[in-house]
Write a protein that binds this DNA or RNA. Structure first.
Length: 470
DNA sequence: TTTTGAGTTGTTCGA
DNA sequence: GTCGAACAACTCAAA
């Protein structure tokens, strides 16, 4: 009689039980499975994202009947220790493709191998793993549309059929998911958080079903409207792997809405691919001239401008509404992300990574690959970047995508007495919005200033010059 | 091999 | 009011 095999399922960015190939493999042959989450103190902080993670872990633990083992510490020590304690032959994971995760997983694999155990990666958070879609000469794409065509032609697997039902979960003594929630909430303090949606796999599936039946048909028309609920709202669910993009793709048809949504999923995959091939792009500009020769603003005036941007007090309502939505909810509508990013980079002349860092600290869906690439697109230094002359006008963007000003009044109480689209130009009605800040810059002036700086950068870079301070 | 046309997300200006 | 041009430089894929 052979002993029942025992294996560890190490959850990271895949906090679900269905469509999870690594779990199906871990549970194969009727093995007992120890469900593990390693709470790495370096990655758990008082942020909204950690608060969301804590709730997602609690939801997962509930699905597991309380069997989720939480261990605090560095995965390099914790994972081999748990595997030894469990008497497990292998540890199963979905592969991580971001720079930190790659190094961590290599170190964990070495430590396990030294003990005669194995780390078994299977599957990833993407329909097609980063690095798989290449040009015919094997080099990575740098332009989205050709990537999208090749990505579509490559195709992806159907959802894995497993559901977690019938898995023989094995609980080990240790901390519970609630310990993460307790630690995060204690660090975060009593600050209330509006609109943090339900976390976990069941919430993700419910959200997807609701979007598919009620929002997808009009997605192509409504996705740019922050005053409507035109987006899927799945970003945080995808960020923590509560639902897999494969699950979504399998249910998309050829309608206009579905096609537009498939392209957004593909952007997530494209940016993961870019980070895989260029790990340094998480922090550094892919076009290095923006790091070495761009005249960014510095000094007390620049510091004050950054603080006004962070607080949502720039005097431009569409920008301020977005930044206050971020503070209140840990989320901003994508159209507004582009506008506030453009404002930081082109109107305030501040480096994109300041904004990227602020976003990562505050966004509940903050994803290193998508965030860095999105900011670099806006700044003009990334792959397939925005043309240098594409500078968003914060007022006309607001008038176009929030025609009645409803989005503004939702987040800017100072504008409550300005009806309709008048809220986009409070400076025309100073008596109706006495508490709203003055504009900190003149967009028409700063737009020209941004074009000047780009010319300066190109000249300086061409002559091998050093960064110029203005 | 070379050429050609297209490429997520815009704005302004002048006719 | 509407419309086209201009605003660079480079990547990619098809011809």
């Amino acid at each position: 009689m052979t002993r029942t095999p025992r294996r560890v399922m190490w959850f990271r960015r895949d906090l679900r039980l269905t469509d999870l190939p690594a779990l199906a493999e871990a549970a194969d042959d009727g093995a007992e499975v120890v469900p593990l989450f390693v709470a790495d103190p370096r990655l758990i902080d008082p942020s909204v994202r950690s608060r969301y993670l804590a709730r997602s872990l609690s939801a997962l633990d509930q699905q597991l009947g309380g069997a989720l083992l939480v261990r605090w510490g560095d995965p390099r020590q914790v994972v081999p220790a748990v595997a030894a304690e469990a008497g497990a032959t292998s540890v199963h994971i979905s592969a991580d493709f971001a720079p930190y995760g790659r190094q961590r997983d290599e170190a964990v694999a070495r430590a396990l191998t030294a003990d005669g155990r194995t780390l078994v990666p299977l599957g990833s958070p993407y329909a097609i793993a980063p690095g798989r879609v290449t040009k015919s000469d094997g080099t990575p794409y740098r332009v989205y549309t050709p990537f999208y065509r090749a990505w579509s032609a490559h195709g992806w697997r159907d959802p894995a059929g497993n559901s977690g039902d019938g898995v023989r979960w094995r609980a080990l003594p240790g901390d519970k998911a609630a310990s993460v929630a307790a630690r995060v909430e204690a660090a975060a303090g009593p600050e209330p958080l509006d609109g943090l949606p339900a976390a976990g796999e069941l919430a993700a599936l419910a959200r997807w079903r609701d979007f598919r039946t009620r929002g997808l048909a009009d997605y192509n028309e409504n996705r740019n409207r922050p005053d409507l609920s035109g987006t899927s709202g799945l970003s945080a669910h995808l960020r923590f792997g509560e639902i897999h993009p494969r699950t979504l793709l399998a249910e998309l048809d050829d309608s206009n809405g579905a096609e537009a949504y498939r392209r957004e999923i593909a952007f997530r995959e494209f940016y993961a691919d870019v980070l895989w091939h260029h790990p340094h792009s998480a922090r550094a500009s892919l076009d290095s001239r923006y790091d070495t020769a761009m005249p960014h603003d510095t000094g007390p005036h620049a510091d004050a401008a950054f603080e006004a941007w962070c607080a949502g007090r720039t005097g431009y309502p569409f920008v301020d509404a977005g930044m206050r939505q971020l503070l209140a909810e840990g989320w901003i509508h994508n159209r507004v992300r582009m506008v506030v990013a453009s404002f930081l980079v082109k109107d305030l002349h501040l480096p994109w990574w300041l904004g990227a860092r602020w976003f990562m600290a505050r966004l509940r869906d903050g994803d290193l690959a998508s965030n860095a690439a999105g900011w670099q697109w806006t700044a003009g230094c990334g792959t397939d970047a925005s043309p240098y002359h594409r500078i968003f006008n914060p007022t006309s963007q607001g008038q176009k995508f929030d025609p009645d000003g409803d989005y503004l009044r939702r987040y800017l109480p100072e504008l409550r007495d300005l009806p309709g689209r008048a809220a986009h130009e409070p400076w025309l009605h100073p008596l109706l919005a006495p508490d709203y800040p003055e504009r900190i810059v003149d967009h028409a002036v700063e737009r020209l200033g941004a074009l000047d700086r780009l010319r300066i950068m190109k000249v300086a870079a061409a002559s091998g010059g050093r960064p110029v301070r203005s």
